[in-house]
Amino acid sequence: MEVSSKQKAVQPMEKLQKMLPAVLLIAISIVVTILNPIFLTWNNISNILMQYSGVAFIAIGAMLVLISGGIDFTSAEIMACGSVIGGLWYLHGGNNILLLILGCVGVGVAVGFINGVLIACLKFPPFIATLAMQSVVHGTMLFFAEGKIIQLSGATVEFLGKGRIANIPAAFLILIVFAALMQLVTKYTKLGTYTYALGGNEQALTYTGVNVKKYKILIYMTTGLCSALGTILITTRMAAIYSSVNSTLLLDGIAATVIGGTSITGGKGNVIGTVVGAMIIGVIGNSLILLNVSSNMHDVVKGSIIVFALLIDVLVNRQGNKD
């Protein structure tokens, strides 16, 4: 209830914030298409969808914790550790892809659970707790990996990584189904409602007698699950597992969420915006290659767009406070 009354008070800026991801995506697309018409070919667009579906999964996870007023720095490490442990099971289990999936999901959910316990039960600040866990998960990955590169093969790997249905990347279709599911979860389940309420006013939620600890742990576990599912898509696309951390994944996941309209102060955000945010990150990287721009500019452009999205967020909050 509280959330919706707050929302009414800040309508004009909030509308802009909600529209921002779509407006940004269209604006960037128009500019790039004018400069290089190849951008708008299905071949190119489907490549972006294929490449960034995994990032979108991770971004949806990051969105959940941000809405609840927390943060999670372990997503890239979940990818590294989950894929290494899943990859080793895959190797020992006679190239069984189910073992890879099990390994990734197991690590993701377990790390999410520990994050949740540290934050909800021991009251660690999410920033510190997940930063410390980042280190623990990284060390665990190195312990198991021993520098191996595991190559993956088989029809399922091929399908998840590079497959298409009616020329639409399978990874993107999986993302659509998952995003729809998460949209339902955030809108119509207790978990969703309490996630927003936690970010809006945790104290108030506690007074209503809700088991806040349980839901906080569940949120971090869901985030871990999202990171694990994203890991499966990224790993199968690469058809190889490296015992090193994907250098851009953590930033991309959080950036996609913020660009997608999730408030860094919690309480606001939506799945569609986050998926669009992930695709904006993809479009930026793609267009800089298409326009033959130095990849150093990639970080500058990505950073500037995050700053812009944060600025809108700050303005929305300021207007909300005034009202």
Binding site: L142, A145, E146, G147, K148, I149, Y242, S243, S244, V245
Partner: peptide, 8 residues
């Protein structure tokens, strides 16, 4: 000390 090359 990560990566295949380093371990090797």
């Amino acid at each position: 000390m990560e990566g295949a090359f380093w371990v090797d």
